[in-house]
Design a protein around this nucleic acid. Structure first.
Length: 445
RNA sequence: UCCACAGUAGCUCAAUGGCAGAGCAAUCGGCUGUUAACCGAUGGGUUCUAGGUUCGAGUCCUAGCUGUGGAGCCA
Protein backbone atom coordinates (compact mmCIF):
# COMPACT_ATOMS: atom_id res chain seq x y z
CA UNK A 1 0.00 0.00 0.00
CA UNK A 2 1.26 3.46 -0.79
CA UNK A 3 0.67 6.40 1.52
CA UNK A 4 -0.22 9.89 0.24
CA UNK A 5 2.56 12.25 1.28
CA UNK A 6 3.70 15.82 0.82
CA UNK A 7 6.95 16.14 -1.10
CA UNK A 8 8.37 18.27 1.71
CA UNK A 9 8.23 15.16 3.95
CA UNK A 10 9.75 12.80 1.38
CA UNK A 11 12.91 12.15 3.44
CA UNK A 12 10.84 10.31 6.04
CA UNK A 13 9.67 7.70 3.51
CA UNK A 14 12.90 6.27 2.10
CA UNK A 15 12.35 2.66 0.92
CA UNK A 16 8.60 3.05 1.38
CA UNK A 17 5.84 3.19 -1.18
CA UNK A 18 4.24 6.66 -1.49
CA UNK A 19 1.65 8.49 -3.52
CA UNK A 20 2.48 11.94 -4.90
CA UNK A 21 -0.28 14.21 -6.20
CA UNK A 22 1.11 17.09 -8.17
CA UNK A 23 1.99 18.82 -11.41
CA UNK A 24 4.76 18.09 -13.90
CA UNK A 25 7.41 20.78 -13.40
CA UNK A 26 9.83 19.52 -16.05
CA UNK A 27 10.57 16.31 -17.88
CA UNK A 28 13.79 14.93 -19.34
CA UNK A 29 13.21 12.35 -22.05
CA UNK A 30 16.00 9.75 -22.28
CA UNK A 31 14.11 7.28 -24.42
CA UNK A 32 13.53 4.23 -22.28
CA UNK A 33 14.08 6.39 -19.19
CA UNK A 34 11.96 9.40 -18.16
CA UNK A 35 12.93 11.89 -15.49
CA UNK A 36 9.80 13.69 -14.36
CA UNK A 37 10.12 16.52 -11.88
CA UNK A 38 6.87 16.81 -9.98
CA UNK A 39 5.84 19.64 -7.68
CA UNK A 40 2.94 19.48 -5.26
CA UNK A 41 3.14 22.91 -3.63
CA UNK A 42 5.21 21.68 -0.70
CA UNK A 43 8.28 20.82 -2.75
CA UNK A 44 9.68 19.29 -5.94
CA UNK A 45 10.74 15.68 -6.37
CA UNK A 46 12.19 13.77 -9.29
CA UNK A 47 10.15 10.76 -10.35
CA UNK A 48 11.82 8.19 -12.58
CA UNK A 49 10.08 5.89 -15.05
CA UNK A 50 11.97 2.94 -16.57
CA UNK A 51 10.34 1.36 -19.58
CA UNK A 52 11.08 -2.13 -18.22
CA UNK A 53 9.45 -1.47 -14.87
CA UNK A 54 6.14 0.05 -16.04
CA UNK A 55 3.38 -1.35 -18.19
CA UNK A 56 3.48 -0.17 -21.77
CA UNK A 57 0.43 2.10 -21.64
CA UNK A 58 1.62 3.92 -18.53
CA UNK A 59 5.15 4.36 -19.85
CA UNK A 60 3.70 5.80 -23.04
CA UNK A 61 1.73 8.32 -20.96
CA UNK A 62 4.83 9.17 -18.94
CA UNK A 63 6.91 9.77 -22.06
CA UNK A 64 4.34 12.25 -23.39
CA UNK A 65 3.66 14.27 -20.25
CA UNK A 66 3.57 18.00 -20.89
CA UNK A 67 4.71 20.70 -18.50
CA UNK A 68 2.12 21.35 -15.74
CA UNK A 69 0.06 18.25 -16.45
CA UNK A 70 -1.64 17.08 -13.26
CA UNK A 71 -0.66 13.58 -12.15
CA UNK A 72 -0.95 11.07 -9.34
CA UNK A 73 2.18 8.94 -9.05
CA UNK A 74 2.80 5.92 -6.86
CA UNK A 75 6.25 4.52 -6.33
CA UNK A 76 9.04 3.80 -3.91
CA UNK A 77 11.24 6.51 -2.43
CA UNK A 78 15.00 6.13 -2.63
CA UNK A 79 17.86 8.36 -1.56
CA UNK A 80 20.03 9.33 -4.52
CA UNK A 81 22.52 12.17 -4.41
CA UNK A 82 22.03 12.79 -8.15
CA UNK A 83 18.36 13.69 -7.74
CA UNK A 84 17.44 17.38 -8.01
CA UNK A 85 14.46 18.82 -6.15
CA UNK A 86 13.31 20.67 -3.07
CA UNK A 87 14.51 18.93 -0.96
CA UNK A 88 17.11 17.36 -3.24
CA UNK A 89 18.66 13.93 -2.88
CA UNK A 90 15.47 11.85 -3.09
CA UNK A 91 13.57 10.36 -5.98
CA UNK A 92 10.51 8.23 -6.58
CA UNK A 93 10.78 5.10 -8.72
CA UNK A 94 7.44 5.12 -10.53
CA UNK A 95 5.32 1.99 -10.12
CA UNK A 96 2.09 3.46 -11.42
CA UNK A 97 0.99 6.75 -12.92
CA UNK A 98 -2.37 8.34 -13.36
CA UNK A 99 -2.84 11.36 -15.63
CA UNK A 100 -5.60 13.66 -14.36
CA UNK A 101 -5.19 16.19 -17.13
CA UNK A 102 -2.66 16.60 -19.91
CA UNK A 103 -1.86 20.31 -19.84
CA UNK A 104 -2.03 22.39 -23.00
CA UNK A 105 1.15 24.05 -24.24
CA UNK A 106 2.36 25.92 -21.19
CA UNK A 107 3.51 29.48 -21.87
CA UNK A 108 6.17 29.68 -19.16
CA UNK A 109 9.04 27.48 -20.23
CA UNK A 110 12.14 26.74 -18.14
CA UNK A 111 13.99 29.38 -20.20
CA UNK A 112 14.22 33.09 -19.51
CA UNK A 113 11.27 35.41 -19.89
CA UNK A 114 10.73 39.16 -19.78
CA UNK A 115 9.04 41.01 -16.95
CA UNK A 116 5.96 42.09 -18.91
CA UNK A 117 5.28 38.57 -20.15
CA UNK A 118 5.71 37.08 -16.69
CA UNK A 119 3.47 39.71 -15.06
CA UNK A 120 0.79 39.11 -17.74
CA UNK A 121 0.99 35.46 -16.74
CA UNK A 122 1.26 36.07 -13.02
CA UNK A 123 -1.49 33.52 -12.33
CA UNK A 124 0.80 30.87 -13.82
CA UNK A 125 4.14 32.41 -12.83
CA UNK A 126 3.25 31.72 -9.18
CA UNK A 127 3.96 28.04 -9.93
CA UNK A 128 7.61 28.74 -10.75
CA UNK A 129 10.01 27.74 -8.02
CA UNK A 130 11.42 31.24 -7.45
CA UNK A 131 7.98 32.74 -6.95
CA UNK A 132 6.96 29.79 -4.83
CA UNK A 133 9.98 30.35 -2.56
CA UNK A 134 9.41 34.11 -2.25
CA UNK A 135 5.73 33.85 -1.36
CA UNK A 136 6.40 31.16 1.21
CA UNK A 137 8.96 33.46 2.83
CA UNK A 138 6.42 36.30 2.68
CA UNK A 139 3.93 34.17 4.60
CA UNK A 140 6.53 33.47 7.27
CA UNK A 141 7.43 37.15 7.57
CA UNK A 142 3.76 38.07 7.88
CA UNK A 143 3.15 35.40 10.53
CA UNK A 144 6.35 36.26 12.42
CA UNK A 145 5.40 39.92 12.60
CA UNK A 146 2.07 38.96 14.16
CA UNK A 147 3.66 36.41 16.47
CA UNK A 148 6.17 38.98 17.68
CA UNK A 149 3.58 41.65 18.41
CA UNK A 150 1.32 39.11 20.11
CA UNK A 151 4.23 37.98 22.31
CA UNK A 152 4.77 41.59 23.34
CA UNK A 153 1.18 41.93 24.55
CA UNK A 154 -0.12 43.85 21.52
CA UNK A 155 -3.70 43.15 20.43
CA UNK A 156 -4.63 42.82 16.77
CA UNK A 157 -7.42 45.34 16.15
CA UNK A 158 -8.44 45.74 12.52
CA UNK A 159 -8.95 49.21 11.07
CA UNK A 160 -11.34 50.17 8.26
CA UNK A 161 -10.39 50.14 4.61
CA UNK A 162 -13.29 52.35 3.49
CA UNK A 163 -12.79 55.72 5.14
CA UNK A 164 -14.57 59.10 5.01
CA UNK A 165 -13.18 62.14 3.26
CA UNK A 166 -9.87 63.03 4.83
CA UNK A 167 -10.16 66.52 3.44
CA UNK A 168 -6.65 67.17 2.24
CA UNK A 169 -4.48 65.88 -0.55
CA UNK A 170 -7.01 63.49 -2.02
CA UNK A 171 -4.86 63.12 -5.14
CA UNK A 172 -3.01 60.26 -3.49
CA UNK A 173 -6.18 58.47 -2.37
CA UNK A 174 -8.36 56.11 -4.35
CA UNK A 175 -11.86 57.53 -4.36
CA UNK A 176 -14.90 55.29 -4.24
CA UNK A 177 -18.62 55.90 -4.34
CA UNK A 178 -20.08 55.11 -0.92
CA UNK A 179 -23.80 55.17 -1.71
CA UNK A 180 -23.56 58.60 -3.22
CA UNK A 181 -21.00 59.95 -0.80
CA UNK A 182 -17.31 60.39 -1.43
CA UNK A 183 -15.18 57.83 0.36
CA UNK A 184 -11.60 56.70 0.08
CA UNK A 185 -9.54 53.55 0.42
CA UNK A 186 -7.36 53.76 3.51
CA UNK A 187 -3.78 54.93 3.20
CA UNK A 188 -3.02 53.97 6.78
CA UNK A 189 -4.82 52.60 9.81
CA UNK A 190 -2.90 54.84 12.13
CA UNK A 191 -5.50 57.37 13.22
CA UNK A 192 -7.89 54.53 14.11
CA UNK A 193 -5.02 52.74 15.82
CA UNK A 194 -4.69 55.68 18.16
CA UNK A 195 -8.35 55.38 19.15
CA UNK A 196 -7.96 51.62 19.59
CA UNK A 197 -4.81 52.12 21.65
CA UNK A 198 -6.80 54.18 24.13
CA UNK A 199 -9.14 51.19 24.51
CA UNK A 200 -6.64 48.33 24.58
CA UNK A 201 -3.29 49.88 25.58
CA UNK A 202 -1.14 48.19 22.97
CA UNK A 203 -2.58 47.43 19.54
CA UNK A 204 -1.60 46.77 15.97
CA UNK A 205 -3.36 46.51 12.66
CA UNK A 206 -2.20 44.54 9.64
CA UNK A 207 -3.92 44.98 6.34
CA UNK A 208 -3.79 46.37 2.85
CA UNK A 209 -3.31 50.09 2.26
CA UNK A 210 -3.81 52.05 -0.92
CA UNK A 211 -1.83 54.85 -2.54
CA UNK A 212 -2.88 56.45 -5.80
CA UNK A 213 0.47 58.16 -6.29
CA UNK A 214 1.93 58.14 -9.78
CA UNK A 215 4.99 56.39 -8.45
CA UNK A 216 6.73 54.08 -10.87
CA UNK A 217 9.70 52.64 -9.04
CA UNK A 218 10.95 49.32 -7.73
CA UNK A 219 9.81 50.25 -4.21
CA UNK A 220 6.22 51.30 -4.88
CA UNK A 221 2.88 49.54 -5.22
CA UNK A 222 -0.61 51.00 -5.47
CA UNK A 223 -1.82 48.39 -2.99
CA UNK A 224 0.50 47.14 -0.28
CA UNK A 225 0.36 45.53 3.14
CA UNK A 226 1.41 47.30 6.27
CA UNK A 227 1.55 46.36 9.91
CA UNK A 228 1.11 49.31 12.28
CA UNK A 229 1.62 48.97 16.05
CA UNK A 230 0.59 51.76 18.44
CA UNK A 231 1.14 51.81 22.21
CA UNK A 232 0.39 54.04 25.17
CA UNK A 233 3.36 55.33 27.16
CA UNK A 234 5.82 54.21 24.49
CA UNK A 235 8.79 56.52 24.00
CA UNK A 236 10.67 56.97 20.75
CA UNK A 237 13.71 55.27 22.26
CA UNK A 238 11.71 52.27 23.50
CA UNK A 239 10.04 52.04 20.12
CA UNK A 240 13.41 51.76 18.37
CA UNK A 241 14.29 48.90 20.71
CA UNK A 242 10.96 47.23 19.97
CA UNK A 243 11.50 47.61 16.22
CA UNK A 244 15.01 46.18 16.21
CA UNK A 245 13.90 43.21 18.32
CA UNK A 246 11.02 42.67 15.91
CA UNK A 247 13.22 42.78 12.80
CA UNK A 248 15.84 40.45 14.20
CA UNK A 249 13.12 38.05 15.37
CA UNK A 250 11.63 37.95 11.87
CA UNK A 251 15.03 37.50 10.19
CA UNK A 252 15.76 34.65 12.60
CA UNK A 253 12.48 32.94 11.73
CA UNK A 254 13.14 33.25 8.00
CA UNK A 255 16.66 31.80 8.33
CA UNK A 256 15.38 28.99 10.52
CA UNK A 257 12.37 27.97 8.42
CA UNK A 258 13.49 28.59 4.86
CA UNK A 259 16.97 27.26 4.08
CA UNK A 260 15.64 25.61 0.88
CA UNK A 261 13.78 28.71 -0.27
CA UNK A 262 16.71 31.04 0.45
CA UNK A 263 19.00 28.72 -1.50
CA UNK A 264 16.52 28.61 -4.38
CA UNK A 265 16.45 32.38 -4.72
CA UNK A 266 20.22 32.50 -4.14
CA UNK A 267 19.97 34.87 -1.21
CA UNK A 268 23.30 35.66 0.49
CA UNK A 269 22.29 34.47 3.96
CA UNK A 270 25.44 35.95 5.51
CA UNK A 271 23.82 39.36 4.97
CA UNK A 272 20.79 38.22 6.97
CA UNK A 273 22.84 36.48 9.66
CA UNK A 274 24.54 39.86 10.25
CA UNK A 275 21.21 41.39 11.32
CA UNK A 276 21.81 41.54 15.08
CA UNK A 277 20.66 44.07 17.66
CA UNK A 278 21.46 46.81 18.42
CA UNK A 279 20.95 48.58 15.12
CA UNK A 280 22.74 51.83 14.32
CA UNK A 281 20.98 55.02 15.44
CA UNK A 282 21.79 58.47 14.11
CA UNK A 283 19.92 61.75 14.23
CA UNK A 284 18.67 63.55 11.14
CA UNK A 285 21.26 66.26 11.89
CA UNK A 286 24.06 63.71 11.75
CA UNK A 287 22.58 62.04 8.67
CA UNK A 288 22.66 65.36 6.80
CA UNK A 289 26.28 65.92 7.85
CA UNK A 290 27.24 62.45 6.65
CA UNK A 291 25.42 62.99 3.35
CA UNK A 292 27.22 66.28 2.81
CA UNK A 293 30.53 64.45 3.25
CA UNK A 294 29.45 61.86 0.67
CA UNK A 295 28.37 64.70 -1.63
CA UNK A 296 31.79 66.34 -1.38
CA UNK A 297 33.55 63.09 -2.26
CA UNK A 298 31.27 62.17 -5.17
CA UNK A 299 32.86 62.79 -8.60
CA UNK A 300 30.10 61.75 -11.00
CA UNK A 301 28.09 64.96 -11.62
CA UNK A 302 24.78 63.12 -12.15
CA UNK A 303 25.14 61.16 -8.92
CA UNK A 304 26.38 64.28 -7.12
CA UNK A 305 23.24 66.14 -8.12
CA UNK A 306 21.02 63.36 -6.71
CA UNK A 307 22.89 63.45 -3.39
CA UNK A 308 22.52 67.18 -2.89
CA UNK A 309 20.91 67.95 0.48
CA UNK A 310 20.30 70.91 2.76
CA UNK A 311 19.16 70.72 6.36
CA UNK A 312 15.37 70.76 6.42
CA UNK A 313 14.85 68.75 3.24
CA UNK A 314 13.42 65.24 3.30
CA UNK A 315 15.56 62.39 2.01
CA UNK A 316 15.05 61.05 -1.49
CA UNK A 317 15.82 57.45 -2.25
CA UNK A 318 19.44 58.18 -3.29
CA UNK A 319 20.00 59.69 0.18
CA UNK A 320 18.47 56.69 1.93
CA UNK A 321 20.63 54.33 -0.09
CA UNK A 322 23.79 56.30 0.65
CA UNK A 323 23.05 56.34 4.38
CA UNK A 324 22.14 52.65 4.55
CA UNK A 325 25.33 51.69 2.71
CA UNK A 326 27.36 53.07 5.62
CA UNK A 327 26.14 50.22 7.86
CA UNK A 328 25.89 46.43 7.60
CA UNK A 329 22.67 46.31 9.58
CA UNK A 330 19.49 48.41 9.55
CA UNK A 331 19.81 52.07 10.45
CA UNK A 332 17.50 54.26 12.52
CA UNK A 333 17.36 57.92 11.57
CA UNK A 334 15.49 59.96 14.19
CA UNK A 335 14.37 63.57 14.86
CA UNK A 336 13.38 64.63 11.34
CA UNK A 337 12.42 68.24 10.64
CA UNK A 338 8.86 68.89 11.78
CA UNK A 339 8.07 70.62 8.49
CA UNK A 340 8.59 67.53 6.32
CA UNK A 341 6.70 65.14 8.59
CA UNK A 342 3.05 64.58 9.43
CA UNK A 343 1.06 67.08 11.48
CA UNK A 344 0.55 64.75 14.46
CA UNK A 345 4.20 64.21 15.36
CA UNK A 346 5.40 65.37 18.76
CA UNK A 347 7.99 68.18 18.63
CA UNK A 348 11.28 67.64 20.45
CA UNK A 349 11.29 69.61 23.71
CA UNK A 350 13.24 72.85 23.30
CA UNK A 351 13.72 72.19 19.58
CA UNK A 352 10.31 72.47 17.91
CA UNK A 353 11.89 72.51 14.44
CA UNK A 354 12.47 68.75 14.76
CA UNK A 355 10.06 66.06 15.88
CA UNK A 356 10.16 62.76 17.72
CA UNK A 357 10.04 60.65 14.58
CA UNK A 358 12.13 57.73 13.40
CA UNK A 359 12.56 55.86 10.11
CA UNK A 360 14.30 52.53 9.78
CA UNK A 361 16.40 52.13 6.66
CA UNK A 362 17.15 48.59 5.48
CA UNK A 363 20.67 47.65 4.36
CA UNK A 364 21.70 46.99 0.75
CA UNK A 365 19.83 50.00 -0.62
CA UNK A 366 16.30 48.80 0.18
CA UNK A 367 15.33 52.11 1.73
CA UNK A 368 12.73 52.95 4.32
CA UNK A 369 10.96 49.88 5.72
CA UNK A 370 9.44 51.44 8.84
CA UNK A 371 8.40 54.93 9.82
CA UNK A 372 6.97 56.09 13.10
CA UNK A 373 6.82 58.72 15.79
CA UNK A 374 5.58 59.83 19.15
CA UNK A 375 2.20 61.47 18.60
CA UNK A 376 1.09 64.83 19.89
CA UNK A 377 -1.05 64.16 22.96
CA UNK A 378 -1.86 67.73 23.99
CA UNK A 379 -5.18 68.79 22.39
CA UNK A 380 -4.24 72.48 22.14
CA UNK A 381 -0.95 71.73 20.37
CA UNK A 382 -2.68 69.27 18.01
CA UNK A 383 -5.29 71.89 17.08
CA UNK A 384 -2.53 74.42 16.44
CA UNK A 385 -0.74 72.00 14.13
CA UNK A 386 -3.97 71.26 12.23
CA UNK A 387 -4.48 75.00 11.77
CA UNK A 388 -0.86 75.58 10.71
CA UNK A 389 -1.00 72.80 8.13
CA UNK A 390 -4.36 74.22 6.89
CA UNK A 391 -6.20 70.92 7.43
CA UNK A 392 -10.01 70.80 7.71
CA UNK A 393 -10.66 70.73 11.43
CA UNK A 394 -14.10 69.04 11.13
CA UNK A 395 -12.62 65.94 9.51
CA UNK A 396 -10.29 65.51 12.46
CA UNK A 397 -12.77 66.21 15.24
CA UNK A 398 -12.89 62.59 16.44
CA UNK A 399 -9.11 62.46 16.34
CA UNK A 400 -8.84 65.59 18.48
CA UNK A 401 -11.43 64.05 20.82
CA UNK A 402 -8.94 61.32 21.69
CA UNK A 403 -6.86 64.01 23.38
CA UNK A 404 -9.79 65.26 25.48
CA UNK A 405 -10.58 62.07 27.36
CA UNK A 406 -7.58 60.83 29.28
CA UNK A 407 -4.81 61.68 26.83
CA UNK A 408 -1.48 59.92 27.33
CA UNK A 409 1.91 60.03 25.60
CA UNK A 410 2.00 57.36 22.92
CA UNK A 411 3.87 56.28 19.84
CA UNK A 412 3.58 53.94 16.89
CA UNK A 413 5.09 52.96 13.59
CA UNK A 414 4.25 51.22 10.35
CA UNK A 415 6.24 48.52 8.60
CA UNK A 416 5.79 47.96 4.87
CA UNK A 417 5.52 44.23 4.24
CA UNK A 418 6.58 44.16 0.60
CA UNK A 419 9.72 46.23 1.11
CA UNK A 420 10.61 43.99 4.04
CA UNK A 421 10.13 40.87 1.92
CA UNK A 422 12.14 42.39 -0.94
CA UNK A 423 15.01 43.15 1.39
CA UNK A 424 15.02 39.79 3.18
CA UNK A 425 14.78 37.91 -0.12
CA UNK A 426 17.31 40.20 -1.83
CA UNK A 427 14.92 41.03 -4.70
CA UNK A 428 15.44 43.96 -7.04
CA UNK A 429 11.73 44.87 -7.21
CA UNK A 430 8.68 44.66 -4.90
CA UNK A 431 6.44 43.30 -7.67
CA UNK A 432 7.55 39.73 -6.91
CA UNK A 433 6.86 40.04 -3.17
CA UNK A 434 3.07 40.06 -3.46
CA UNK A 435 0.96 37.49 -5.32
CA UNK A 436 -0.79 40.01 -7.56
CA UNK A 437 1.00 43.34 -7.67
CA UNK A 438 -1.10 46.43 -8.28
CA UNK A 439 1.06 48.99 -9.99
CA UNK A 440 0.64 52.22 -11.93
CA UNK A 441 0.07 50.30 -15.17
CA UNK A 442 -0.90 46.86 -13.91
CA UNK A 443 -4.30 45.66 -12.71
CA UNK A 444 -4.27 42.23 -14.42
CA UNK A 445 -4.55 39.39 -13.68
C1' U B 1 4.68 64.97 -14.96
C1' C B 2 10.02 64.71 -16.56
C1' C B 3 14.54 61.93 -18.42
C1' A B 4 16.67 57.48 -20.69
C1' C B 5 16.04 52.85 -23.14
C1' A B 6 13.10 49.22 -25.64
C1' G B 7 8.98 46.88 -28.89
C1' U B 8 10.98 41.25 -34.72
C1' A B 9 8.03 33.58 -34.37
C1' G B 10 4.25 31.28 -28.31
C1' C B 11 9.03 32.91 -25.25
C1' U B 12 14.30 35.05 -25.15
C1' C B 13 16.94 37.51 -28.72
C1' A B 14 19.95 38.40 -33.68
C1' A B 15 19.81 40.71 -38.62
C1' U B 16 26.01 47.52 -42.07
C1' G B 17 19.41 50.80 -45.63
C1' G B 18 19.69 45.14 -49.79
C1' C B 19 16.70 37.12 -49.48
C1' A B 20 13.24 37.42 -42.08
C1' G B 21 17.36 34.23 -38.64
C1' A B 22 18.92 31.28 -34.01
C1' G B 23 17.94 28.94 -29.23
C1' C B 24 13.86 27.33 -26.26
C1' A B 25 8.66 25.73 -26.56
C1' A B 26 5.38 22.64 -30.08
C1' U B 27 5.25 18.14 -33.54
C1' C B 28 8.06 13.61 -35.26
C1' G B 29 12.39 10.36 -34.58
C1' G B 30 16.91 8.57 -31.48
C1' C B 31 19.11 7.67 -26.63
C1' U B 32 18.81 3.68 -19.18
C1' G B 33 21.13 8.91 -15.07
C1' U B 34 19.07 13.70 -16.95
C1' U B 35 19.87 18.45 -13.71
C1' A B 36 17.29 24.79 -18.24
C1' A B 37 19.71 17.08 -20.90
C1' C B 38 21.60 16.12 -25.68
C1' C B 39 21.37 14.77 -31.21
C1' G B 40 18.46 14.90 -35.99
C1' A B 41 14.05 16.57 -38.67
C1' U B 42 9.33 19.53 -39.34
C1' G B 43 5.86 23.51 -38.88
C1' G B 44 5.78 28.57 -37.13
C1' G B 45 6.22 36.12 -39.09
C1' U B 46 0.61 42.34 -39.84
C1' U B 47 9.04 43.16 -37.61
C1' C B 48 3.76 47.77 -31.94
C1' U B 49 0.45 51.49 -34.89
C1' A B 50 -0.10 55.59 -38.48
C1' G B 51 2.34 58.62 -41.75
C1' G B 52 7.00 60.08 -44.28
C1' U B 53 12.20 59.73 -46.74
C1' U B 54 14.27 56.11 -50.34
C1' C B 55 15.01 52.30 -56.36
C1' G B 56 14.54 49.57 -51.69
C1' A B 57 12.86 50.39 -44.48
C1' G B 58 12.93 45.53 -39.14
C1' U B 59 16.84 49.33 -39.74
C1' C B 60 16.35 56.42 -41.08
C1' C B 61 12.57 60.69 -39.79
C1' U B 62 7.71 62.46 -37.33
C1' A B 63 3.60 61.42 -34.20
C1' G B 64 1.19 58.03 -31.15
C1' C B 65 0.61 53.45 -28.17
C1' U B 66 2.76 49.91 -24.81
C1' G B 67 6.54 48.40 -21.57
C1' U B 68 11.20 48.81 -18.68
C1' G B 69 14.66 51.67 -15.56
C1' G B 70 15.22 56.19 -12.90
C1' A B 71 13.59 61.07 -10.91
C1' G B 72 9.66 63.68 -8.79
C1' C B 73 5.64 62.26 -5.73
C1' C B 74 5.27 58.89 -1.30
C1' A B 75 0.44 63.85 4.94
Amino acid sequence: MSVYVNISDIAQYVDQSVEIRGWVYNRTDKGKLQFIQVRDGSGIVQCVAFKKELDEVQFDIASKLTQESSVVIRGSVRADSRAPGVPSGFEVGIQSLELLQKAEEYPITPKEHGTEFLMDNRHLWLRSSRQWAILRIRATIERSLRDFMDSQGYLLVDTPIITPAAGENTTTLFEIDFHGERAFLAQTGQLYNEANMMAFGKVYCFGPTFRAEKSKTRRHLQEFWMMEPEAAHLSLEDMMTLEEQMISFVVGRVLENHPHELALIERDVARLEAIKTPFARISYDEAVERLKQVYDKTEDPEQKDLLKIEWGEDFGSPHETALAEMFDRPLFVYHYPTAVKAFYMQPVEGRPEVCRSVDLLAPEGYGEITGGSERIYDPTLLEERIKTMALPREAYQWYIDLRRFGSVPHAGFGIGLERTVAWMCGLPHVRETIPYARMLSRNYP
